[in-house]
Write a protein that binds this DNA or RNA. Structure first.
Lengths: 205, 205
DNA sequence: AATATTTTGTACAATCAGGCACAAACGGTC
DNA sequence: GACCGTTTGTGCCTGATTGTACAAAATATT
């Protein structure tokens, strides 16, 4: 085990491995190899072995990896061997879609609260969750010790809302607004911007 | 100019630069420096200068970069100085949200067709666009020479639909299904999976 | 039991990416 | 016109990342 300082680029691949392993597990497969896993997800076998070996010797020569065991290890490393309560701020179309998404369930997350500043939306329910006013955002975050938020407000409001989230104690923000967020170093941000992702591909067309 | 072989990691940053520049431009700013831009988006000034200089000498010592000029150059490099017709396959909540998203307009893309295999959805309109049957997917893609698609079908169907897209001529796929897609080397894929993005952050909590 | 096959974990090598620092160029001021 | 402050583009260096190859370990086969 070499837990001192794992590069972020390796951490970023672990969820990919985990997703593929869960897929294999769902199909009833019990064992796999770095070769098979690599073929599945388009990553070299050596890279997978090296990444995994950063955290311990989880495989066995000759037979590869036990899928249930490796899943358990990766979940534990990524801290998704528990359920994180997640909030959604901004109940436009994207917020709605995420609130109704059922893909979080077995991956360590549960959407527990929704927020918007539109009086017409406040009090309504989406997927059995009430939409709260932004006025109670900070209070609710602190009360429920929320650490993870998805931000689906317009770009013009994103930085200000982000500041509120951080001030209330949120440490991980999944940002759907097409703008950069300025946050303190102890807060993590991941950006999802379809136009940016598309532009990254058109270069090659 | 050194166009031989630009690393993908640099291409990936250009849309970020472009987005920030357009934001400045919208505020009426005419000039900027690598320093200012870097502070905005959390990237070192040296990196920005080096990335941009891969494509030519767009700046001027002492004064920095002309924003309209740099925007024009980046759009041209990324081939978004035109409008790409984009289709959405899979009209669940995410497909709906993307169909109604108005953030593509000035960034080089326009959603022009929607597809689903649910007879109840076929023929309905979303954002003034009719939902077509999957039966006509290939035909419509070829007819309209579609190169870019957003894939918002369930994971279980993603690979098969992806095959259809590729066979019909699509070269860039924005994949919202939580699964890896196997495509030929001349097809680009970008993955958007909220659970994966979240798991990448929980490690640090 | 001996041999062949598979597969891991890692040492080493090679490549890639990012930061530093500075000459050169530009605009403004005196 | 000389000087000053600013900012680019780039050469060099360092550190990070990936690929190669192989010993060791496990299983399968004869």
């Amino acid at each position: 085990m070499n837990a001192d300082k794992i590069p972020d680029i390796i951490i970023g691949r672990l969820p990919i491995y985990l997703r593929a392993l869960q897929r294999l597990s769902d199909k009833g497969v019990q064992n796999t190899s770095s070769q098979e896993l690599g073929d599945m997800i388009g990553i070299s076998a050596a890279q997978i072995r090296k990444d995994i070996s950063q955290f311990g010797e989880f495989g066995k020569q000759g037979t590869g990896y036990s899928i249930p065991f490796l899943i358990e290890r990766l979940q534990s490393i990524l801290k998704v061997n528990r359920i994180w309560d997640v909030i959604i701020v901004g109940m436009g179309d994207m917020g709605h879609a995420l609130a109704r998404y059922n893909g979080f369930a077995n991956r360590g997350f549960k959407v527990t609260m929704l927020f918007d500043n539109d009086p017409k939306k406040i009090g309504q329910k989406v997927n059995n969750l009430e939409i709260f006013s932004m006025d109670v955002l900070s209070e609710k975050i602190k009360q429920n010790r929320i650490k993870v938020a998805m931000l689906t407000v317009p770009a013009s409001a994103a930085q200000e809302v982000s500041n509120q989230l951080v001030k209330a104690g949120v440490k991980a923000i999944l940002n759907y607004a097409p703008t950069h967020l300025n946050v303190p170093p102890d807060v993590r941000v991941q950006h999802i911007d379809p136009a940016t992702h598309l532009q990254r591909m058109t270069y090659y067309l």
